[in-house]
Computed example of a mutant assay.
Amino acid sequence: MQIKESNQQQKVKVSIYTRNTSIEQSKGHRLYRDIQVLKEMYVKMGYEIPQIYFNVACQGNGIEDRKALKQLLKDVSLGLIDVVLVWYLFSLSSNATDLLKIKQFLDEHNVELCSATEPFDTSDFEGELHFQWMVSLIEDEHLTCKRDISLSSLARLIMTRGQSLKGGELNAELRNESIGTA
């Protein structure tokens, strides 16, 4: 995962968001790992990490249910954040609709969304399609529990297989759906 290059990395404000995503996870263990690893990695690369947002309890998946996520979105609207960094997309939401709303909100405020474990780049059509596949896969319980392959890799595999097996018809269908022409 790499944040888009900048001549002045110190001026790019990267905020980390994470949460406890399961009742079975011991409170704080994964949160600590996410925060420490991401903070150390990006501070070492010269990025400023002005704020870290986290929800300790396994609260509801909805945006309104999580105080830290609501605060992050408020700070985005105030222009305090340039990049939101997560360990993986599931950290933001396991609900595809909410995840798309969050991504749209970030896009409207020119804030980049980055995942440390699921590389994607939504700056072009193919990257946006890749992201949409990831979002559509995120609600599959099997995929979110068994992480032998990242959502990013699985989405790329589906895109590639769809193109080769159907001569690109699958991608054309998704492209039409994403731009509202069916």
Rank of each mutant, 00 (worst) to 15 (best):
N7G: 10
L72S: 06
S150L: 04
K103S: 05
K44I: 03
T18M: 06
T97N: 10
F90H: 07
Y53C: 05
V76C: 09
Q71T: 09
M134P: 00
A96K: 14
Q8A: 11
L170G: 04
E173F: 10
S26Q: 12
T160R: 12
G127W: 06
G127C: 03
V43D: 01
G168W: 13
L174F: 14
L69I: 03
Q9M: 14
G168L: 12
M159Q: 01
S136P: 06
F125V: 10
Q104K: 15
E141P: 11
K70N: 01
G46K: 07
G167W: 01
M134W: 01
L89M: 11
L170K: 03
E112M: 12
N55M: 05
N171R: 07
V12P: 00
Q71M: 07
L100P: 00
Y17N: 08
Q25Y: 00
Q9A: 14
T122A: 11
L85G: 05
N20F: 00
W133A: 03
A182R: 14
L85V: 10
K166I: 02
H109S: 02
G168I: 07
V135S: 10
F131G: 06
I102D: 00
M134Y: 00
Y42H: 13
L151N: 01
K101T: 08
L92P: 02
N7T: 06
L80N: 07
K4A: 06
C114F: 09
L69Q: 02
Q163K: 09
S91C: 15
T21W: 10
K70M: 02
S93D: 03
L69A: 01
K166N: 11
S6Y: 15
Q59H: 12
G60Y: 13
V56L: 01
D65Q: 15
L151T: 04
P50A: 03
L137D: 08
L174H: 03
R30V: 02
K166H: 08
T21I: 15
R161W: 04
V76W: 04
C58N: 15
V12D: 04
T144Y: 15
P119W: 11
H109F: 06
L143C: 03
E141W: 13
K13T: 07
I149G: 01
Q163H: 07
E173T: 15
Q9T: 15
W133G: 04
I52A: 02
G180Q: 07
G28D: 04
L165A: 10
W133V: 01
K4D: 04
I35T: 13
V76E: 11
Q104E: 14
S6I: 07
S22T: 11
G162F: 10
K146L: 09
Q59G: 10
N176K: 06
D121Q: 08
I102A: 05
T160Y: 14
Y53L: 05
A96D: 14
E24A: 14
K44A: 11
I81Y: 03
D82L: 04
G60A: 12
L31R: 12
I63P: 09
M45N: 04
T160I: 11
V56W: 00
T21P: 13
V84W: 05
V37D: 08
D75T: 02
E139K: 15
I138S: 02
W133I: 01
I63H: 11
E139T: 15
N20G: 01
D98V: 03
K4G: 05
E48L: 02
T181V: 14
T97P: 00
D75I: 02
K13W: 09
